[in-house]
Design a protein around this nucleic acid. Sequence first.
RNA 1: GCCCCCGUAGCUCAGUCCGGACAGAGCAGCGGACUUCUAUUCCGCUGGCCGCAGGUUCGAAUCCUGCCGGGGGUGCCA
Length: 545
Amino acid sequence: MDVRESIKNLIRDSLSSLGLEMTAEIHLERPANVEHGDWSTNIALALAKKAKSSPRDLAVQLATALESLPSSYVSRLEVAGPGFVNFYLNKSWLYEVLLQAVNDGTENWARSEEGSNKKVIVEFVSANPTGPLHAGHGRGACYGDSVARILERSGYLVAREFYVNDRGTQMNLFASSLAACTAGENIPEDGYHGAYIKEWAAEIPRDQDPLEWGKKRALSDQREVLRDLNIEFDSWFSETSLVDSGLIEKTLSMLAKANASYEKDGATWLKSTEYGDDKDRVLVKSDGEYTYLLPDITYHLDKLTRAERLINVWGADHHGYITRMKAAIESLGHEPERLEVEVTQMVNLQRSGEEVKLSKRTGDIVELSEVVKEVGSDAARFTYLLQSIDTTQTFDLDLVSKRVNENPIFYVQYAYARIRSMMKKADEIGFTPLPLSEVDLSQLQHQRELILLRALHELPDVVERASRELAPHQITTWLREFAADLHGFYHDCRILGDDIEPSLTQARFLLMRGVLIGLEIGMDLLGVSAPEEMWRDEIVEEGDG
RNA sequence: GCCCCCGUAGCUCAGUCCGGACAGAGCAGCGGACUUCUAUUCCGCUGGCCGCAGGUUCGAAUCCUGCCGGGGGUGCCA
């Protein structure tokens, strides 16, 4: 049983011995300050009013009752502040954490069954196949992939999906831009003017259709940079396929039958205002062409047949579509909650302190591939996942590439490399780790060691939270702190050496195995690599280059 | 006008979901620590009316309301 459950049970028993009904969930938290114990509960504060007692008095009563109960964990109790009861535990619970982590290994530690194999489709990027991905797409790409990894570790069956808008107005404009360029004519005013158009136009073989060729060109370009970022999609869902299969027409008749649409001014409209939208939205234009919305609704209906949860990652410029998409889903009898739209705020790219515009249509773009090439895949991913998607991000290429000492990814990777390096050394000098059961973990008494164990214990909670909140930056934050804990330990505590007690070497080596597992899991969830070694010269060259 | 996001240290950001004990970290600045398994490290100091004003609460950075400031959206474009 987890130490937390054990303590909660103690509290529950104590409260009932005091004749108090449990009305609230018992809240156990890790105090921010270590002087406040290993665990703390505010239950006395929460129940004081009901118990017609002062929080402080109630806390004292609770503590007294707790002390009369036997526990293998609790060594000391304390009533503090306005009425907190603080638990000071003996260290066995921390040693259990280490054993558990090492027993489970990277594959299984901090994994949960919370998702109980529910199917979830994470749809992200879904950029139009009309050009390369730009730096802004990188954020959604890294976020979506990391969310998928976190959900997988939380017991979901995850599919990564890319919706390809391979038909419609934008696609036609793209094709005509390419065609115009090939023919040496001016690109239409509302066409695509990016520098890549000229390059691509020059590549088109004479007998090829610009639209089909351009689509393939764009998709392969996008796929390549995503692969560089360590992102692989399970499926690329083509909008055209929805037309071919007749599903779009089917959606249209379903909406009509549900009385969710109507005809006006020669167009077909969705009654989205009935679900809180500002205005009704056009599904079929008066010229008979579909708007983007209708195929998109069809696509979402299809996804609903394939998964229980749909998670979409959209850029901030699409937030207005959430209401209409949910309106469509709900009007056809589905629960709108099954669609969760995560909106990523803008990325402002800087280089030499100068703002760089992202617009694909002005042609003044910084492509994602440039970013990856300049700062590297790991640094790019880590940087994109450094903060909550709710905040506008300033991605400074100079900072992330040149000034490595300001770049947290190296700090974390270096922590990993240091342990690897120590283990290599251990191997060279013929060190043999004892079997788990023979290692005397009570050797681990140093503050640095205990801090590491506490941090390791947090990881499953952090993963659970990241999964619940769809927030990879929780992992990033933990990883940075955990790496700091490791560096502190590494500085103060030697592992190998003639002057170190062999039993202490064994215990610390085991500790390092546990830390390695924690780092590997964290880095895997972010999709960054865990390097065996890192050398200064190498980095300096990379930073200057 | 309406909708979404943000406003916490000089800078970049955690913490806000689910209210608790003196508000944290990195970078920048200042000062220290390498005969050791990697100093890309470590330790210390400096630095905050948590945008403003009310409200709820024993208790608010966190919840509610209203403002102010910044960004984005608001097409029979995607």
